[in-house]
């Protein structure tokens, strides 16, 4: 366990030094912020999905709750940013408790489907109400926080990094506390856990609320960073699925799996989206600028990138069911 604390500290120190090497490079900073965000979201999901084995398919609801609460409060009032984020945590926790009350009576596929249903209700409600900007979304302008330059990338890089490190620390604490052993017991066999006197309902809800609160902070930071939110950006089923996919590809139930998954999937998605993959082939001399392969990539990769993403998903699930970390560790689920 000490080794893992050292790991988190090393990671935090190394990641915190990245901006000093990077210099003024907003594009790469943007990708790194997205990576940190996805890593934090996947790690947060991992607390309830990985440790407690409750595969929530509706985490976008908590992310969106944070994003919407913060955006609404910031545009409608002069409440300071940290309080807005706090209100976002509260909103997400409430939705989590409500969700828990409904879905934790169910198991397996029923649980997965019910968590989707709750998240869809949240999405459609935000889509239909006036206060959330409805289908038009919310544009936030002119926000200030102290004397931070919110047009630059650094505040958001460090905010997301802080959130990720906090999430990792909480994961480690939860994992090695009494609660953590209860959660593992629940994951392995709910009925056996119940017969040992573990209060299933209490511990599952606790894991979900912690997870939701962390996800909501990611949502709040996202909203202030992008300054525009709508339901398809922050409450979609696609986002919920991406969070799970990130965790699974990295290694579910492990501390570093979600981080690894985020690093790989975010860079892959961006390389495909922007056709950097094709450029890489040209620059490394494998194909030439004029070759038909490059012109095909240039014209079609943008069309095909989601397809490639799908193919990689299928290959990973079929060949690496325990994620990439599963390759390196025999006993990853201890």
């Amino acid at each position: 366990m000490t080794k893992q604390w050292t790991g988190i500290a090393t990671f935090a120190a190394l990641a915190a030094s990245v901006p000093f090497f990077l210099g003024d490079n907003p594009y790469i900073a943007d990708i790194l912020i997205t990576m940190l965000m996805m890593a934090a979201l996947a790690s947060a999901w991992n607390i309830v999905g990985g440790y407690a084995g409750q595969f929530s398919f509706g985490h976008a609801a908590y992310f969106g709750a944070g994003a919407y609460t913060t955006s609404i409060l910031l545009t409608a009032s002069s409440i300071a940013l940290p309080l807005c984020i706090g209100a976002g945590i509260l909103a997400a926790s409430l939705i989590a408790l409500l969700t828990g009350a409904i879905v934790f009576r169910l198991r397996g596929h029923y649980f997965a489907l019910a968590s989707i249903a709750v998240a869809e209700i949240v999405r459609l409600t935000a889509h239909n109400l006036e206060i959330t900007g409805g289908a038009q979304g919310l544009l936030i302008t002119d926000i200030t926080f102290g004397n931070l330059d919110l047009n630059s990338k650094e505040p958001f890089y460090f905010a997301m990094l802080f959130l990720l490190v906090t999430t990792l620390a909480i994961s480690l604490l939860v994992r090695h506390s009494r609660a953590g052993y209860f959660l593992l017991a629940i994951r392995e066999d709910q009925d056996a856990a119940a017969s040992l006197g573990i209060n299933l309902y209490l511990w599952k809800n606790m894991a979900l609320v912690i997870s939701a609160a962390l996800a909501s902070v990611a949502g709040s930071i996202y909203a202030v960073y992008i300054r525009f939110i709508d339901t398809s950006a922050v409450l979609s089923l696609r986002l919920s699925i991406e969070i799970i996919l990130t965790t699974i590809i990295g290694g579910v139930g492990t501390l570093w799996g979600p981080v690894l998954g985020a690093a790989l999937l975010v860079s892959l998605a961006e390389a495909l989206r922007s056709n950097l993959a094709g450029e890489l082939l040209v620059n490394s001399g494998i194909i030439t600028e004029a070759s038909p392969i490059e012109s095909f990539l240039k014209n079609n990769l943008a069309h095909a990138h989601v397809l490639v993403y799908g193919i990689i998903t299928v290959l990973c699930i079929l060949n690496l069911p325990k994620g990439i970390l599963g390759l390196f560790r025999r006993k990853q689920r201890t």
């Binding site: 699974i248 799908g310 998903t313 299928v314 069911p321």
Partner: peptide
């Protein structure tokens, strides 16, 4: 695990 099955079918759907 059911989440792996779900993600496999999600991936097939994307393809």
């Amino acid at each position: 695990p059911s989440e792996n099955q779900i993600l496999l079918t999600v991936g097939l759907g994307l393809i």
